[in-house]
Amino acid sequence: MRSLIDIIDLTPEEIDGLINTAEDIIENPEKYNEKCRHKKLATLFFEPSTRTRLSFEAAMLELGGSVIGFSESSSSSAAKGESVSDTVRTVSCYADIIAMRHPKEGAPMIASMRSEVPIINAGDGGHNHPTQTLADLLTIKREKGRFDNLTIGFCGDLKFGRTVHSLISAMVRYENVKFVFISPQELKIPDYIKSEVLEPNKISFSETESLEEVMPELDILYMTRVQRERFFNEADYIRLKDSYVLTNEKLTPAKPDMCVLHPLPRVNEISVDVDDNPRACYFKQVRNGKYIRMALILKLLEIE
């Protein structure tokens, strides 16, 4: 029995397999609409997340399965002090697979050690969010046709952004991938990502504070939110916040086939006028998230 806790639990070959399944689902949705008949997905959301929960639920429903669960811990027995282990052991008596979001880092791993059914980590605090990374990867594959020979710019909050760290971990396994990290000093990529992920894999990377400067060289631009609460003082936030807002004007020197990604929700870091730019792929990313979750559910349930 397999669970998915961290994106690197999956080999590149397994990721290719999931992407192939997702693309087949996109091409032939009718082939899949009964695959999970009589199967139940439990969505255990110990903290609210409308987007991810609905994506999982839509994925299971489109596979012909059904969904049970809760969307905040106050409506679960966790509010009575039950441990994650006990909740999961109980729910695994009712459901065939569990998608779990928890504010504490490592909670889904504990769950996977105790559960009798596969666990999918749907986000554990600021730690991992592997199905977001799978959505990112499917979008990259569909838009660029490859994972190798890409220059990927990450812009915004690179210090706390779990989606950034997970996508880096997934992409370092491919040939000739270069990273450009675009952030204010306060939100730079952490040193441990450099020493434990980039350097051992001999990955070429550069760091800059200027998005405009590097725009022409990027194949992918991964935007993230710069959050006010990450700054030590208001003056720094005000000084920097507009530097990391993407507009159509800033996109002018970009490659015509460059692809703009964002894990969403956005606040103001991508101007609404970019939505109609052909480079904008973030809503495709949302749709792809559902398809890759469908592929993942099939894989973990060992349904062909």
Binding site: V84, H102, K104, E105, M109, I110
Partner: peptide, 13 residues
């Protein structure tokens, strides 16, 4: 000693 870790709230782990 990470206060965000699951071990900070579930003592038996």
């Amino acid at each position: 000693n990470n206060p965000r870790c699951i071990t900070s709230v579930e003592q038996e782990i």
